[in-house]
């Protein structure tokens, strides 16, 4: 688009567009989670020690007997003030429950994205450059397997082989409980050991998609006249690929990676649950099972915001790398 709009102006416009979008999302999410049968106290219904009058008493105490629109309104008013409410599960503040889980998720998702990129770049570039040769066929087959693997099944398989059968790696958790490690190095090694299996699951699944995308984009770029021109000028082949071809080709892949970053975090819900990883994903699973409305709302709004932000960031990054996109 031939437009003189600068990157900050673009960001500003997108941010303004995001506000009504997030509002609509909040209404939809609120209605959806309340439309699912069973509330936070449904779990008590099967417990013979809890009488129906006790359940009514708890519903009133938590304000769940009020009309839905009123519940939404109080939630929205509090949420916009930064008050995310209290978890019905343990009575602690939602923000405290979320904040304590963020580092684990960032650690898992961050490492997985780096690992996925480390797999994507050689597989994508190599696949394009050596198109049709054995390397391309091999990475293509592996990528297809990666895309098709259900993460929970892949995770359980890795656990059975590397933890239960071979005993090389711990099957779940973030650290060995009570194992502080003799030195900082062994403590770090303990963390790394716990990361290997869940990161493998997330990275393989992501790299499978990203590498195919990068490969396609590279093939398209390599066929462009400016590549032929660069080669005609005698630019070394390595520079042609890494500078002339990769830069424009990686722009769109990077945009996908940034958009996917938020999705990797949400994809980690299953992986975190399989590997008992103490992050936001397992918090989400727990909150969903218990219909802990305030925790669910906060997590879903955070995810939505993260997706919007990553989209805006992807646009900006793409614009910076490839000015034609502004």
């Amino acid at each position: 688009m031939v437009d003189s709009m600068s990157v900050p102006a673009l960001l500003g416009r997108r941010a303004l567009q995001a506000i009504p979008l997030l509002f609509v999302v909040s209404v939809l999410v609120f209605l959806l989670i309340h439309a699912v049968p069973g509330g936070p106290f449904a779990i008590y219904l099967s417990n013979p020690n809890v009488r129906p009058e006790d359940i009514e008493r708890l519903r009133r105490a938590y304000g769940l007997d009020r009309p839905l629109w009123l519940q939404y309104w109080s939630w929205l008013a509090a949420f916009t003030r930064g008050d995310w409410g209290f978890s019905v599960i343990d009575g602690r503040s939602v923000s405290a429950r979320i904040v304590e889980r963020v580092p684990a998720t960032l650690e898992l998702v961050g490492t997985s994205i780096v690992a996925a990129l480390a797999l994507t770049l050689p597989a994508g570039i190599g696949g394009a450059v050596r198109r049709g040769r054995w390397f391309d066929r091999l990475t293509g087959a592996v990528a297809m397997a990666g895309i098709s693997l259900p993460p929970f099944w892949f995770g359980l398989l890795l656990q059975m082989v590397f933890a239960a059968f071979l005993g090389w790696l711990p099957s779940s958790g973030r650290t060995t409980p009570g194992y502080a490690g003799a030195t900082a190095m062994t403590a770090l090694a303990d963390r790394v050991r716990h990361l290997v299996l869940p990161v493998t699951v997330l990275a393989v699944v992501q790299a499978a998609a990203w590498s195919r995308y990068l490969r396609g984009s590279m093939i398209e770029t390599l066929a462009q006249p400016f590549i032929a021109a660069a080669r005609a000028r005698g630019v070394p082949a390595r520079l042609v690929i890494l500078r002339h071809a990769l830069r424009p080709a990686i722009g769109s892949t990077l945009a996908i990676v940034m958009v996917d970053a938020a999705l990797v975090a949400s994809g980690a819900v299953v992986t975190e649950s399989v590997f008992a990883w103490p992050g936001l994903g397992s918090l989400f699973t727990e909150a969903l099972a218990r219909r802990d409305y305030s925790v669910l709302m906060a997590l879903l709004m955070l995810t939505s915001t993260a997706i919007v932000v990553s989209n805006v960031a992807a646009d900006a990054a793409h614009a910076l790398i490839d000015p034609r996109c502004v």
């Binding site: 050689p122 570039i125 190095m185 770090l188 090694a189 790394v192 050991r193 590549i227 032929a228």
Partner: peptide, 30 residues
């Protein structure tokens, strides 16, 4: 033009860096 040699130096450097990481943390981790 379609099949230029791969960027071997960059790959070699990446492999060396990877090997260093694996050699440092690997024995303890695995």
């Amino acid at each position: 033009w379609a099949g230029p040699p791969p960027p071997r130096c960059a790959l070699r450097r990446a492999c060396a860096a990877g090997a260093m990481v694996v050699l440092t943390i690997g024995p303890a981790a695995c």
